[in-house]
Design a protein around this nucleic acid. Structure first.
Lengths: 320, 320
DNA sequence: CGATATCTTGATATCGATATCATTCACTTC
DNA sequence: GAAGTGAATGATATCGATATCAAGATATCG
């Protein structure tokens, strides 16, 4: 910048102002300086600016990558979320610092202006750990999670559960089963919505706990139902994979889907749509979720009032 | 740091040295300063250090997110790669700056110490664009891509093709078909390996070009074979989804897999393993790939000699 | 015409760390 | 006892940007 100043015959500070589009400089001077900057390939030194401005223009995204329970790195949704986040933050001039969750809080994370926590129903210990850092923080997850002292963005899992219940009721199903993990905050919300809506019609679903969200787990769940001679006519599975596994098992056992048993999954993965028969499911818009997460942190960083928000989820009825 | 200096009764510079484990300070003093730092929750100002040290301790990861052709954000592999990268870089004290590819090179990217380019066979324009930045750069992709003036890490797609060919030959298949997109550099390598190995036995496979890597595309490919009354006894599909689609179509057409036709996919997605019948496929270790990418950039940054490297891919024989 | 307002530019200090060179002090060695 | 050695610490300058305050040039007004 000093070099540019010399070239343009002005002072450093004028160069700085010219490049930051300040109104304090003569438009003519500004143009001249900017032209010189382009010509000589001037690059702003981000560290210097951040140092002086006492902010990093960076938001850290912490991804929970616990390699268990089948739903983590292999799941495509974190990437969609990341895409939305990245898109929104970069267009606002912020950088995205990607970190995987660790026990110790990274020095680079502490230097960020804000935090976004992603993961499979981020657990409380993670939230508490990063809460201590005292940075603006937004969490992806279920509403009400963690005492409302931080902002949560997520899709409306409760409503997802409700709409599945409504669908089952509307087609006359009376013996629904829920497959999923109630300890998982997001899935718990789905369960609550499902149960509450059904309760309004005097129906109590059977809860089948499964912590693995794999196809095998779905197969296994339905087999266990069959072995226990449980009567059921509809299944709400908390992931598309579970649903597909359930359908496979149903077919093996000689049941017809959807004639004998209706099955609805969750997530609207591309595979579900291609499945035979095409899977009915609940769709969440992750890309949009990422954008929302980013907007919330930015608002927090700029000291604006922010509220948690749940995005609507939509029931996609296909053939099951 | 100045405050710490006062508290400890030493100078700033001594504090700096104590915290960076320099041997220039008395071990006793070092301990005392470090204890004080911990007690008062001192945090290093990264910007200041980076400014003084003239490096950013940051590697930018540029992800190609072209939302087309079915294989992008919805594909889980970028996340695995990212996981490996993130793990390796953070443990080396570097930060991961996540960016999605854009036409203009981001200012933050220019400030990075190194670049990693990810994407579905990163195209040459992207490589050239970022090459101009003049930073140490490593690209994920196919070997030899782009004139060898930059480092490439990828799985050995050629070898993958060879091993599929070997398998087909070993079980007596004589009329193989290749389904994929030869314009895609990585897939082209698979094709070359496949063709070369077969040629050694006087066999020439049929090439079926498909640019979409979806299940439907696989279905469609096999149907077109059938309509054209082509004689074939084995299919090498360039993605698991294609393979599954192909198998579905084969079954619909009354062929038995693997009795009439052998099918081998690529990527070893979790779904392939759960497919009925369980899918034979070629596995790539993405996590490891990420680690490798990270190591190469770090080496480049530190001025060490670096070479492109292809990781072995392994044929996983299941039931198809 | 003098006084004030406006526009444009500059001098200086500062953000928080580290490299370099200088200094102090205790101790060894002949 | 003088000179030399090494360990520990400090003073100062510096990285590259921007905020603050000051000042010169020009325009506007009664």
């Amino acid at each position: 910048m000093a070099d540019l100043a010399e070239l343009a015959g002005v002072s450093k500070i004028t160069v700085s102002r010219a490049l930051s589009e300040s109104t304090l400089v003569n438009p003519e001077t500004r143009e001249r300086v900017q032209a010189l900057a382009r010509k000589h390939g001037y690059k702003l030194n981000v560290s210097a600016r951040n140092l002086r401005l006492r902010r990093s223009h960076t938001v850290a995204v912490i991804v929970e990558m616990k390699p268990s329970s089948g739903r983590t790195m292999w799941d495509p949704y974190p990437l969609s979320l990341l895409g939305g986040i990245s898109q929104e933050l970069t267009s606002a001039g912020y950088s995205v610092l990607l970190t995987t969750r660790q026990d110790a809080v990274n020095a680079a994370v502490q230097a960020a202006d804000g935090l976004i926590l992603l993961g499979q129903g981020v657990r409380q210990d993670a939230v508490r750990l990063y809460d201590k850092v005292g940075l603006p923080m937004v969490v992806w997850g279920a509403a009400g999670q963690g005492g409302d002292n931080h902002i949560v963005v997520g899709s409306d899992n409760r409503q997802g559960g409700v709409s599945v219940a409504e669908r089952f009721l509307s087609i006359g199903r009376r013996h629904p089963v829920f497959i999923g993990n109630p300890d998982h905050p997001e899935m718990a919300q789905r369960l609550f919505g499902f149960v509450d809506e059904l309760a309004g019609h005097g129906i109590k679903p059977l809860l089948l706990r499964r912590t693995d969200f794999t196809l095998e787990s779905g197969v296994d769940a339905v087999r266990s139902l069959s072995e226990r001679k449980v009567r059921f006519d509809s299944i709400f599975a908390c992931s598309d994979l579970l649903a597909m596994g359930a359908i496979r098992a149903l077919v093996e056992l000689g049941h017809s889907v959807p004639n004998d048993v209706s099955v609805i999954g969750y997530d609207d993965t591309p595979l579900g749509a291609s499945f035979l028969p095409p899977l009915s499911t609940v769709r969440q818009n992750w890309q949009e979720g990422g954008v929302l997460l980013a907007r919330k942190v930015l608002a927090l960083i700029h000291g604006q009032p922010v509220q948690s928000q749940m995005m609507a989820s939509t029931l996609v009825v296909r053939s099951t």
